[in-house]
Amino acid sequence: MKPSTQRTTTAPREIALTMSRNAVSRFLPLLGEGILLKGPGGETVEAFLVKTAGVSPAYLKERVQTVFLNGKALDDFSTARVADEATLALSAAMPGLAGAVLRRGGIYAPMRRQISHEAQSQNAGGGEIYITLKLFNMVARELGPEFLKRGVLVPGVRLKDFMERQGRWAWEGCLSVKIDGRPAEVGPAAELIANSHWIRLSVHASG
């Protein structure tokens, strides 16, 4: 499912889960499907991630070895700019020849010239923009818990689908639920997920 960046005029409902510590990681694959981020337009990819997502420049440089902007492999995130409705995906270094080929600025980059992101000549525009951010593999593992703690904006339909795929483990390890800041049960939370256009989901580890 392509993440939709269509916005609602109403504020999204909030669901906060407190999970046993080892159950939090079950939510990490959700970050690979895309979360909505709001931030200033006209920024470079690097600046946008630092300002809006709180990712450190050092982490980006060292750990984020593979980056896609609108599905195209990016070699330099300090010059490419994000525009409204862009999709940005971050990954650690990947195995396989394909992994080496897709790496930022790697020596095998010529092998994927046709799907490389080209430098933009025009300005990406200013103002407030919404982008879809995808976190994959080790990047999701390392940055994901903090994103989940702060809360991530996801389409309700995708969250419903994600929870259903967990089967009997979906709510296992869930110690408490809050809806819009008030204590709630699992049932109403599941119902809210099923009936909401957007949900702001936060997941906290117990203890």
């Binding site: 995906a89 990954s91 394909a98």
Partner: peptide
């Protein structure tokens, strides 16, 4: 090795 699925998919390959 299945770590590649998301990445290759994102690349459109």
């Amino acid at each position: 090795t299945n770590v590649l699925t998301n990445v290759i998919n994102e690349a459109g390959a």
